[in-house]
Design a protein around this nucleic acid. Structure first.
Length: 866
DNA sequence: AGCACGCCGACT
DNA sequence: GTCGGCGTGCTC
């Protein structure tokens, strides 16, 4: 059963003194049971806080039966805070060091977190070197987390006329508001707003001392069910004859009559008396263009219609699609599917390596269907950006309302409903992003991780710094489920596992339908530049090709891996470059908003008209981002309809969907964007993809730079030419000789893999070694460096010199006013070694943290960084 | 994460 | 002389 949400909980932390409970007088009447029968239970709870251990609370004896592992309870934590937390264990061992506090309340009568989840969360905390509280915090939709808020209320014994203490003007104001309504209460922030000051604590303290008000903690479920207002005909009208009478009465009121007619049209009261019981959504009547909303209200006021509320699901049970979407798998798809199933016989994990456009989704759907037939649950993970309306509607048509969707743009209430839907068994398939691995499955049969190479599966801030692909694999392992990883450009680590025989491998080399892979052309920007043939950032080759495609009414995608107009501006007279005041980066110019913005901390300033250093008006933009590409293109090709898709244009809730649908409907011809355009989008009419500046992607100081570049080029190329059309890709680069281009052009993953794996082996990187990246952050540069040096020493002392690299300041050495130092640790892959090493890393971190002068240093461990 | 207790600067 | 700043430590 799904947990029942209770609306409001009130807990007194400061009891009004007048109501001193009389029951404290000793009445020692015990129930039938004698004291010796009593079993005293204790629970270990996970608090949603970054605390290293669990806390033990005592179960009130009468509540022994209510304890549910994985259920939520409310406890007092510290002097003031009342929190909800998850019961991780039940036992009878009283803590020796301290007196356990009692649990205040039990929220759920069934687990909200399943046993396999608890096991998984423990593994995560261990593996990713974080606390269970941090895992729980990331896992639970925040509406399932309760936390208290202090409120004040007029003291029940307070009578204004008898108050012996003089009140200040501010105090009077608070009192008059609290007295305005019986039992009215205010939060601290409300008090602050009311008085227009932020230091309201003094006032509150004084009022408490004078016995005018008291404090209490208010704890409310944040989850609110969705309510729909409905109306139906008042019951006594539902009778023959009576209704006619009503019509006559309303004869002179045409508007009301209209409403009534419409109601009867939708609710056939004559044919079926019971139809009236369910009624009709009020909004259907009030928002109908031909009806008057006020007439509806008049009918309600006069008792003809009755209004009532109904709690509904945010994911309505739609009628199952009449004709379920049925599609035939192609021969290649069928073969691949059978091979996957076959491999699942001996392996738990299979990689489906299929070129872009090979039709992997149909294979997934077929496998999901099979898994459901076997009675198990299915989790289908997608990177954020690929989880579009396109794929959801498609899955909806196959799985109907058994499909749950879990998405970062979902509201919290929606998330809770998906969570509960998984618990109750309503949702047997969930398609979702990274955080969907936290959903409370307990009977998984299959997990699909699509685009498994995607770095967005890895969370970096805040902890837990987990990779959803790895978590999914672990969860599948715990629940005996099979996992299918899918990608056109598998992560080197993943492919290595197939070579090592640990994962099965199925390959699809042909595109679905007759579509061939796109033709890829490299264009040398250096040559064009020397010949003075560049049009802004476009080579003549790219520009001509764009024009050709547009004249054929075909669409174009342009990829530029940097948002904004230009990465910085520069004063031509004095050389001034605006820098972020919090970070060691230049400010990016955003033309649309006339702002200079920091892409690391969000700091923004108005674009100056003149140089603040020398007063010159010769401010020039340097470099280019998506905004400039969009701008230039609009000027050079005024007939083209250009749309930009990047973080800045997709901030609003539905803008992303809008841009995609405009492009789909071919309202826009050219889509300019950042990485967003490289992922999983499937448009039939795109025949050209342009990569404006390939060099900025390849030249990156990181062992994964080549892998990332290869994946990005192949993925974005894959957007070109689908559904029978051969597409073209133009890559602009100043250095066409780069080794990886050769592999991209021939779309030769295997060759890329062989090349890359050799490098990884030689330089000792994953998959041969495991990397843990330590970051030391400090407001003070020198202290940060010293802390990093000490940490390095401690690490070397435990792990050996060869395992530790650094410390080193990263390229961007200051973010949000914190100076950064990085240490890279390389470890043997073996589990016992790894576990031991993590303990030693914790020790080393503690040595630094225990040092008085480094108290303000922040130490972060990132396991398997990306 | 809060929040309470504890030690140093600018003020009625 | 105090009020209040935030730095450090604890929460079952």
């Amino acid at each position: 059963m799904a947990p029942v949400a209770r609306s409001i909980r009130v807990i007194f932390t400061v009891r009004p003194t007048v109501f001193f409970p009389l029951s404290l007088s000793f009445d020692f009447v015990l129930p039938e049971a004698t004291a010796t029968d009593r079993i005293t239970l204790f629970v270990d709870v996970i608090l949603p806080l970054p605390l290293p251990k669990l806390y033990t609370y005592r179960v009130p004896y009468e509540m022994n039966d209510e304890v549910v592992i994985g259920g939520r309870v409310i406890v007092q934590f510290g002097a003031k805070k009342t929190l909800s937390c998850i019961v991780a264990a039940v036992h009878e061992t009283p803590p020796k060091q301290y007196q356990a506090k009692y649990i205040l309340e039990f929220i759920d009568d069934a687990p909200v977190v399943t046993q396999p989840q608890l096991k998984l969360f423990r593994w995560m905390a261990d593996y990713y070197m974080c606390t269970l509280g941090e895992v729980i915090n990331a896992a639970l939709p925040s509406a399932l987390k309760l936390s208290s808020e202090s409120r004040i209320q007029l003291h029940p014994a307070f009578v204004a006329e008898e108050n012996p203490y003089p009140l200040s003007e501010q105090e009077e104001r608070i009192v008059s508001i609290l007295a305005s309504e019986d039992g009215k209460s205010l939060t601290f922030t409300e008090v602050g707003d009311l008085l227009g000051i932020s230091s309201f604590h003094k006032v509150i303290k004084s009022l408490i001392q004078k016995d005018v008000i008291f404090l209490f903690e208010h704890l409310a479920d944040k989850y609110t069910p969705k309510v729909v207002k409905k109306v139906h005909l008042a019951h006594h009208f539902v009778e023959e004859g009576v209704l006619e009478e009503l019509f006559q009465k309303l004869a002179s009121k045409p508007k009301q009559l209209d409403v009534l007619m419409r109601y009867l049209q939708r609710v056939p009261v004559y044919q079926n008396i019971h139809a009236n019981h369910k009624g009709l959504e009020k909004a259907y009547l009030t928002s109908s263009p031909h009806l008057s909303p006020s007439a509806v209200n008049t009918l309600i006021k006069n008792g003809v219609l009755e209004q009532f509320d109904v709690i509904v699901s945010r994911f309505p049970l739609e009628d199952e699609p009449e004709a379920k979407l049925h599609f035939a798998l192609s021969e290649a798809q069928t073969a691949a599917r059978d091979e996957v199933l076959n491999l699942f016989g001996e392996k738990d994990i299979v990689l489906l390596h299929g070129v872009t456009g090979a039709g992997k989704t149909e294979i997934y759907i077929d496998l999901i269907r099979k898994a459901l037939e076997g009675g198990g649950q299915v989790l289908y993970l997608l990177p954020e950006i690929a989880l579009t309306a396109q794929i959801v509607t498609r899955l909806m048509r196959v799985f109907g309302s058994r499909l749950g969707v879990y998405h970062s743009k979902f509201s919290d209430n929606e998330r809770v409903e998906v969570w509960n839907g998984v618990l109750s068994g309503r949702f047997q398939v969930v398609v979702g992003v990274r955080s969907a691995v936290f959903l409370p499955f307990d009977n998984l049969a299959l997990i699909i991780v699509d685009e498994e190479h995607e770095s967005s599966y890895k969370q970096y801030e805040p902890a837990p710094r987990y990779n959803a692909r790895e978590v999914a694999l672990m969860m599948a392992n715990y629940q005996g489920a099979k996992t299918l990883l899918g990608s056109a450009t598998p992560a080197v680590e993943t492919y290595y596992q197939t070579r090592a025989g640990r994962y099965g491998l199925v390959t699809l080399t042909k595109r679905f339908g007759e579509a061939g892979l796109p033709e890829i052309e490299l264009v040398d920007t250096r040559k064009s530049r020397e010949a003075k043939k560049m049009h802004n950032h476009f080579t003549p080759e790219l520009l001509t090709e764009i024009e050709t495609k547009l004249s054929l009414k075909e669409q174009v995608i342009l990829f530029q891996n940097r948002r904004g107009y230009s990465p910085f501006i520069n004063c031509l007279d004095c050389g001034w470059i605006p820098k972020c005041k919090n970070c060691a980066v230049s400010l990016s110019y955003h033309k649309h908003s006339h702002e200079l913005r920091c892409h690391y901390c969000g700091y923004a300033d108005r674009m100056p008209v003149e140089c603040p250093a020398c007063g010159s008006r010769n401010l020039k933009t340097v470099g280019f981002g998506t905004e400039k590409i969009e701008d230039d293109l609009k000027i050079m090709l005024p007939a083209a309809n250009v749309q930009r898709m990047d973080l800045d244009t997709t901030r609003a809730k539905n803008s992303y969907q809008q841009i995609i649908s405009d492009f789909e409907k071919q309202t826009t011809n050219v889509l300019v964007g950042t990485q967003m355009v490289t992922k999983g989008l499937d448009f039939a009419n795109v025949s050209l993809v342009g990569i404006i500046n390939a060099d900025s992607i390849i030249h990156y100081p990181d062992f994964r730079a080549h892998e990332r570049a290869f994946q990005m080029f192949v993925q974005v190329s894959g957007r070109a030419g689908r559904k029978g059309k051969k597409g073209k890709v133009i890559i602009q680069t100043a250095d066409p000789q780069q080794v990886i281009f050769d592999k991209v052009i021939r779309n030769d993953y295997l060759e890329f893999y062989d090349y890359e794996i050799t490098q990884r082996r030689e330089y000792g990187f994953p998959p041969f070694m495991r990397v843990i990246r330590m970051t030391v952050k400090h407001m003070d540069q020198s202290l940060g460096e010293q802390a990093a040096i000490l940490l390095t020493q401690e690490l070397v002392a435990r792990l050996g010199r060869e395992a530790v690299l650094g410390p080193e300041a990263p390229y961007i050495f200051r973010i949000r006013n914190f100076y950064l130092q990085e240490i890279t640790i390389k470890l043997d892959r073996e589990h016992t070694v790894l576990k031991q090493a993590k303990l030693q890393i914790c020790e080393a971190m503690n040595v630094v943290k225990d040092q008085k002068e480094f108290k303000q240093a922040r130490l972060v461990a990132d396991v398997d960084p990306m």
